[in-house]
């Protein structure tokens, strides 16, 4: 909705009004930086940030960190989302499994995702494996929930049709329940994608050994290199933006027949 508004206004001068706050902010920032004084350590000039960006590009440091963060997020999505979908299917199709699994699922889900990190760190060290587990877990929760809900919400009237035509359990699942639940499953995966990006940055900040944007930021912070930190924030933000944009586009596409119920 809002993205659309932005696009529509792209060629109208009113759009320029949106530039006022960031431009004023940057001018003030640059002024503080150039002025020096008490906060000189903190404020870096825009020229410095630009130089940092160029340097990080040139050394390949940025590409490496960005690539490993993105790789972590996507493999977490694949693993957590895959397992989550299977668990969601099992819970959605079998009442006994639902009854047995949901209290465990619901109690584990209460723990803030990064709160698991000290425990996982003790078990698996503070390397890539621990990070991947947390990122996968952040994809696991929403996919389980949305797969399960999607299957639960398949209406009894549609299942009656399957019974009238004597479809087997597998046929009913594959031809009716799965496609009926698909919009909800995709919603879960989209949410998982957004979550994995956030948790990737989080785990990299906490376990800052190894590659990754979060780790790079954390190292830069320890060396008081605000320029590098800002470049990282820029890339984290742009990726977040791209993910949200992608989700919006894909949902419109995938959910196109959602409003048209049987």
């Amino acid at each position: 909705m809002t993205l659309k508004t932005l696009n529509l206004n792209a060629f109208k001068p009113v759009w320029l009004m949106g530039l006022i706050p960031p431009v004023l902010f940057l001018l003030w920032w640059d002024h503080e930086a150039v002025k020096g004084g008490a906060n000189a350590l903190a404020f870096v000039s825009l020229a410095q940030v630009g130089q940092a960006l160029i340097d990080m590009f040139a050394t390949g440091e940025l590409g490496l960190s960005y690539g490993s963060s993105l790789g972590r997020a996507l493999s977490g999505l694949l693993i957590g989302g895959g397992i989550g979908t299977l668990v969601g299917i099992a819970m959605g199709l079998s009442k006994p499994i639902e009854w047995a699994a949901s209290p465990i699922y619901n109690s584990f889900r209460q723990v803030p995702i990064l709160g698991w990190l000290p425990l996982i760190g003790l078990w698996f060290g503070s390397g890539d494996l621990s990070k991947l587990i947390i990122v996968a877990l952040s994809a696991f929760y929403p996919t389980v929930l949305y797969t399960f809900e999607g299957l639960k919400q398949v209406e009894a009237r549609l299942l009656d049709v399957a019974r009238v035509y004597r479809l087997s359990g597998w046929q009913t699942f594959w031809r009716i329940q799965w496609p009926a639940a698909l919009p909800s499953i995709f919603t879960g995966l989209f949410q998982a994608l957004a979550f994995t990006w956030i948790s990737t940055i989080g785990v990299e900040l906490l376990f800052s050994s190894g590659a990754g944007l979060g780790a790079m930021m954390q190292q830069a912070q320890l060396q008081a290199r605000l320029d590098i930190v800002l470049v990282c924030i820029l890339f984290v933000g742009l990726t977040g933006f791209a993910i949200n944009f992608l989700i919006k586009r894909l949902s419109q596409h995938v959910l196109s027949w959602r409003s048209i119920r049987a």
Binding site: T2, L3, T5, L6, V14, W15, M17, G18, L19, I20, P21, P22, N39, L41, A42, W197, I198, I201, G202, L205, G214, M217, Q218, A220, Q221, A224, L226, V229, L230, C232, I233, V236, G237, L238, G240, F241, N244
Partner: peptide
């Protein structure tokens, strides 16, 4: 409408950045 035009884009842009990513910057500042 004015507030929306002036602050809307900044708001939408900042919203995309995961909060955790601001931690190192805020620590420095």
């Amino acid at each position: 409408k004015t507030v929306e035009r002036v602050f809307g884009p900044t708001f939408q842009a900042l919203r995309q950045v995961p909060v955790l990513a601001f931690i190192p910057m805020l620590i420095l500042l």
